[in-house]
Design a protein around this nucleic acid. Structure first.
Lengths: 215, 215
DNA sequence: CAAAATTAATCAAACGATTGATTGGCTTGG
DNA sequence: CCAAGCCAATCAATCGTTTGATTAATTTTG
């Protein structure tokens, strides 16, 4: 049956995603992935062409679920610029917890200079989110919701950067917060609300200033 | 001469630092490092014992140069809490540019779970900076300079996170800013001042609010 | 319908390349 | 001369990938 084939490919992708996330692209070996997935090594190349093809397949599957999610926030005419921004933040925070292994994987690969075709594809995807935010900021400036003196680009760096910092350095974050960040209950009940609140206050304070720098 | 030996070891460490930073531990090969350093491959093992030994040597050299560099601004009685924070930001931004290769290396290694002895060591170093900032924030809250409702821990995440985002994803950052972030002249003349200004305004807006959340 | 032909899926084995590490001998300064 | 510095050659291991054979499934044909 066709169903079985898809299930098997999906199972391979599940295993590959976990191993890639844990060990990175270089650290993960095709033998390990095939072994853990219970399939013959040659199947990886048979199905996905190459190790890199497998990695891309993992990536594409993951992001296809993202793509549509936040796409239409920006185009919603009924929301104010600030409401859109709030919605984006809620979205990012919720997703960052669920997919933190995968996010780590992306961040690691992005910081690596090599494998240009790969990073190009990742860049392409990430830039969608970036542009989405940028659009909201620029719209907000135009219609006067946000101060004229704000720096949209660096604000984006702050939004993603703060999120990534927590994800990439959970060891440090845990020490800082006085609680293991990987504890799911703590994450869900304490950290997520706190993080959302903080982010919104931080951005709001900055955005609602005119930040006039012509002292 | 002994001097020559030290110079050569140092040169190897220079090259190794750059290559490890660019390609990661797994991605960097001993042949590449030795080749680019212009020494025989066997010399790496002769000097440093192993690839991991070389990696550790890169770290220790860099860390030892850090140790002395960051002195406690926090204990200066003559500065206001805000002035201290400003000074810290200037410090971090300046340093981030100089050592961005190494910073990348640290961030990657921290996000990777393995090599615990190493991450423990890195954590120790990074926590010094974290605690320094935390002290300033808490002092500012206590003496009324900063609003009571602020979230010091997440602010720290924002400061380091924003910085790391630029460093780790220069490809994205460059696209965002419309200019290659690795262009040194642009970095020094345009980006650094802009980044400092943004950071200070962002933090100031947030800190000077009372952020009362009991709506 | 049944036999033959074709295609798809799977496997063990081996491929060439590259990895980090080691050897043994050559060179050289003290 | 002799230890330290150095290097070409080589090691076993592992890497991602390919192969050719085998089985299972599907389609075609008489």
């Amino acid at each position: 049956m066709d169903k079985d084939k898809i299930d098997k490919k999906d199972h391979i992708l599940d295993v590959a995603e976990r191993i890639f996330s844990d060990l990175g692209f270089d650290g993960a070996s095709t033998r390990m992935i095939s072994g853990e997935a219970g399939v013959n090594m040659a199947m990886l190349n048979y199905y996905f062409g190459s190790k890199e093809g497998l990695f891309l397949a993992v990536f594409e599957r993951k992001i296809s679920s993202f793509q549509t999610l936040l796409q239409n926030i920006g185009n919603d005419e009924s929301m104010s610029s600030w409401d859109k921004l709030e919605k984006c933040i809620d979205n990012y925070v919720d997703r960052m917890i669920v997919n933190n292994c995968f996010q780590k994987l992306i961040n690691r690969e992005m910081s690596m200079g090599k494998r240009w075709d790969l990073t190009d594809k990742i860049t392409e995807i990430l830039m969608i989110n970036v542009m989405e935010l940028k659009k909201i900021f620029e719209e907000g400036i135009k219609n006067g919701s946000f101060g004229k003196g704000i720096d949209p680009e660096l604000m984006i760096a702050t939004i993603f950067g703060t999120k990534n910092y927590i994800i990439n350095a959970p060891h440090i974050a845990s020490l800082m917060l006085g609680h293991d960040i990987r504890d799911e209950e703590f994450l869900e009940e304490k950290f997520k609300p706190r993080f959302k609140t903080y982010m919104k206050q931080l951005l709001k304070s900055y955005l609602m200033n005119d930040n006039d720098y012509t002292k």
